[in-house]
C-alpha cells in the first residue's frame, strides 16, 4: 500500500523539481540571453572545420590569433538566426572586428542559400555538420556567438540572438576595450 502511495506521489515530486529549476531560472539579474560560460577567459577549444563552399579556406582554432573576431554559430533552420542576421550585417562593417560563421548541424547547401539570401557578413564560413565543435564550445543552440580576443581567448558569449541593445551596450564597449 505504501509503495502504491509513493507511486502517486511521483507526479508532484517531478513537478516540484521542474518548478525549482524554473525558480533558479528566474533569479534576479539572470539574463537568459547571457548565460555565463566557464569558457570565458579560456582559449578556444581545438577544432579544425572544413569550409562551407569547396575551395574556400577552412578554419582551425590556431587561426584565431592576431585579430579580434566574433564567431557566430548559425543554421538555416533557426528562426532567431534570421532575426539576428541584419545586426550581424551591420556589425560586419566595423573594421575593428572580423566575423566568422560556423554553420551548425546544417546541410552546407542550405547554409549557403541562407547566406546568399540574407547577405553574408562572414569573412570565413565553415561547416560543423556533426555539431561536434559546437559541443566543445558549449553551444546550447543556435544562434550563439563568441568574441575571441587577439590571443585566441574567449571574452564574451552570447546565447541566443543579439539584440541591438546587446550590441550597443555589451559587445561594442568590449570591442572598443579589446581593440586598443
Amino acid at each position: 500500500m505504501i509503495r502504491r502511495r509513493l507511486l502517486y506521489l511521483l507526479p508532484v515530486l517531478a513537478f516540484l523539481a521542474i518548478a525549482i529549476w524554473f525558480w533558479f531560472g528566474l533569479a534576479p539579474g539572470r539574463d537568459p540571453s547571457l548565460v555565463p560560460s566557464v569558457m570565458i577567459g579560456k582559449a578556444v577549444p581545438a577544432f579544425d572545420l572544413p569550409p562551407l563552399a569547396a575551395g574556400a579556406p577552412g578554419l582551425k582554432n590556431t587561426d584565431l590569433k592576431g585579430h579580434l573576431r566574433l564567431i557566430n554559430f548559425f543554421a538555416s533552420w533557426c528562426v532567431p538566426c534570421r532575426a539576428e542576421h541584419p545586426l550581424l550585417m551591420d556589425l560586419a562593417k566595423d573594421k575593428r572586428i572580423e566575423l566568422y560563421g560556423i554553420a551548425w548541424k546544417n546541410k552546407p547547401e542550405d547554409a549557403t542559400n541562407f547566406l546568399i539570401d540574407l547577405g553574408n557578413p562572414f569573412a570565413v564560413t565553415v561547416a560543423d555538420q556533426s555539431g561536434r565543435t559546437g559541443i566543445d564550445f558549449g553551444v546550447y543552440g543556435v544562434p550563439e556567438s563568441y568574441l575571441i580576443d587577439r590571443d585566441g581567448n574567449i571574452r564574451y558569449r552570447q546565447v541566443g540572438p543579439f539584440t541591438e541593445d546587446d550590441i550597443e551596450k555589451k559587445l561594442k564597449p568590449l570591442i572598443a576595450e579589446l581593440s586598443k
Binding site: W21, P32, G138, Y140
Partner: peptide, 20 residues
Amino acid sequence: TIYPLILDTLGQGTVSVGPP
C-alpha cells in the same frame, strides 16, 4: 524546451537543441 535552462542552473553543460 527546458534543457538549456536546466543545464544553465546546474552550472554548465554541453547540449544542443533544435530540429536535430
